[in-house]
């Protein structure tokens, strides 16, 4: 294919491409998920990973932080975790005679909230508020969180014992919900053969700074979404609201989330305009966790099937 054009070929953003490549060296065979995670970050959203333990969620979060030159903290959610364990506490300093605030792990660029559905709703909501507001209020004092601020939460499959499922309104705060899944045979073989991931992680040099990331986030806003694309987006939203298949239609916030994600995906692919394909690519991960099948539907569709029906039902002129 000699005459391949910029529009037909993804990956013209050299910097972002380098990052994807470097991450791909650590997390094998998951390029699409890596790109989605990066997209989520670029779109200033938070990521929910719904998967079994041991598929590489922590590695993903850690390597992402390292490559991007960001500060990283991990919080293991348990049923006895308290809000203060996340946000931080004020402790009386005997030397100065004052209360001094000790910031919690939430004060970092990337926060990995592991097994978020193991904690009580009270603790969950403390984190979720921080995600929404990008600031926390402790003891009447409001404190800004660092920029950029990115939460990667992982969630065990809901049938596991001892979980507090996140309510729909809370799920809505996550821009994307992805599944990592098992690696394929080739990737797994390489994984088994290769060096320890931790050693690899330690050797990674950051490829960009937090400032550069903020600049990229600003660039996302300037990616052009034409009227034709907005028409298509609105048709998609409208379908979820009209169809009896779904319990509730997509909210305006979901629409904005879709548009932002598509823009970020386009930027990641080195384009300054959004294609319908961008929208279609991010649709499953943005919409899947927001769209519930109606209760009276006899056929219970899984998240990806619900999205597939949606995609096939709305024609693109």
């Amino acid at each position: 294919m000699a005459q391949n054009s910029a529009i037909l070929q993804p990956g013209m953003n050299a910097l972002l491409d380098g990052i994807v490549e470097r991450l791909g060296e650590i997390i094998l065979g998951k390029e699409h998920q890596l790109r989605l995670a990066l997209t989520c970050l670029l779109a200033r959203g938070h990521l929910l990973i719904e998967d079994l333990p041991g598929v590489g969620k922590t590695t993903l979060a850690h390597s992402l932080a390292t490559v991007l030159g960001l500060h990283y903290q991990r919080i293991q959610f348990t049923s006895d975790l308290l809000p203060a364990d996340i946000l931080g506490v004020s402790i009386y300093n005997r030397d100065t005679g004052e209360f001094q605030f000790h910031p919690g792990p939430v004060f970092s660029h990337i926060v990995l909230a592991d097994e978020i559905n193991r904690a009580t709703p009270k603790t969950q909501s403390a984190l979720l508020e921080a995600m929404e507001e990008h600031q926390i209020t402790v003891e009447g004092q409001t404190r800004e969180l660092p920029q950029p601020f990115f939460v990667i939460a992982t969630q065990n499959p809901l049938y596991q014992i001892g979980t507090f499922p996140l309510p729909e309104s809370q799920l809505d705060r996550f821009l994307m919900c992805i599944e990592l899944g098992y690696p394929d045979a080739g990737a797994e073989r390489e994984l088994l053969r290769g060096a320890d991931r931790r050693t690899l992680l330690a050797g990674i040099e950051p490829l960009m700074s937090a400032g550069q990331l903020l600049e990229l986030q600003r660039q996302v806003d300037s990616v052009h979404a034409a009227d034709a694309l907005l028409d298509y987006l609105q048709a998609l939203l409208d379908f979820t609201r009209q169809s009896p298949r779904y319990q509730n239609g997509l909210s305006p916030r979901a629409g904005l989330a879709l548009l932002h994600s598509a823009k970020a995906w386009a930027l990641l692919a080195g384009r300054d305009l959004v294609l319908p394909e961008d929208l279609q690519t991010v649709l499953p991960v943005v919409v899947g966790h927001r769209l519930q099948a109606a209760e009276d539907q006899t056929e219970s569709l899984s998240g990806s099937e619900r999205v597939r029906v949606l995609l096939e039902s709305v024609p693109l002129p």
Partner: peptide, 23 residues
């Protein structure tokens, strides 16, 4: 149809620019 690559590319590229690009 690899023999049509050139035409398909130029049409698609132009179409995308006109329909999804800046007016």
């Amino acid at each position: 149809h690899p023999e049509l690559a050139a035409q398909v590319c130029s049409i698609t590229e132009l179409y995308i620019r006109l329909r999804y690009g800046k007016p």
